[in-house]
Amino acid sequence: MVSRTFYIGCVKILLHDRNEGAVSYEEKGTWVYLVTSAGAYFVYLAIILGRLASAPAAQVPYVAVLVWTAGASIVASIVGQVLVETARPSDSRRADVRDREIYRFGEYASRWFLVAGAAAALVMAMAKADYFWIANVIYLGFVLWAVGGSVLKLVAYRRGL
């Protein structure tokens, strides 16, 4: 279902937006945020998994990669939204009552990813797990919160609240 929604959204943005105007400024922003958040995390995972293959977790240098990919994700989402808006300008850039309801719904429903990440990190800290794993479970919680929230918002935009 998610991949179908993703495909429909991409096609709407790339091909039909100019004619149908069915994708609002806020929805386009959510698509960009989803792609950049997930993309940055996949880059992080690819680098870290490569390093994990040749060294134990406690010795894997992850901090710089984590900070850079998280920072790049934020910059890419801003640049991405500017590019999408340049290519497919929206009628209005102001969020309306529906945008705000969908935003609140997505944030409310996806907060459990953050809670789960924090709870898992707490348990791991009490169990004296390595900093590498604690940091990574928190980062995963943030990524799932961003990705999950975006997916829920996009489903609400496409299928209704």
Binding site: G21, S24, Y25, E27, S92, D96, R98, D99
Partner: peptide, 10 residues
């Protein structure tokens, strides 16, 4: 009414 066109469509 101060909403986006997409909201009217929805």
């Amino acid at each position: 009414i101060g909403v986006t066109r997409q909201t009217i469509i929805a």
